[in-house]
């Protein structure tokens, strides 16, 4: 009966597989965040390479990490900038 109503009103949000998929997506993002130190090192090196073509950064004090909360995972990078290329003023970027 419930199914019939669901079909009549075209209610897709009640579909339990969509719930399953969304829950899995989130849980796997969390699970997969436990990346190896080698992976993080590779990511760090790639970031430095890309950013260095725009900015002069302090590689020693650069920090990157993956931060988790209930509904998402964020890559947090704190990269002190020594010089912006083309002589822009010094800045500290948080992205």
């Amino acid at each position: 009966m419930l199914d019939l109503f669901r079909k009549l009103f075209g209610d897709k949000s009640a579909s339990s597989k969509e719930v399953a998929k969304e829950r899995l997506r989130l849980v796997l993002v969390h699970d997969r965040v436990n990346v190896t130190p080698e992976h993080m090192e590779a990511l760090r090196n790639d970031l430095i390479r890309v950013i260095s073509s725009y900015l002069e950064i302090n590689e020693e004090e650069m920090e990157i990490s993956l931060e988790k909360n209930d509904s998402s995972v964020a890559l947090v990078a704190n990269i002190p900038v020594n010089k912006v290329k083309r002589g822009e003023p010094q800045a500290r970027v948080r992205c």
């Binding site: 199914d3 897709k12 579909s15 339990s16 597989k17 969509e18 399953a20 998929k21 899995l24 997506r25 796997l28």
Partner: peptide, 16 residues
Amino acid sequence: MVKKGDMMNIDDIVDI
């Protein structure tokens, strides 16, 4: 159950 949307289908799982 897949047809009713109450079970993940093959594409969903392969995608994940």
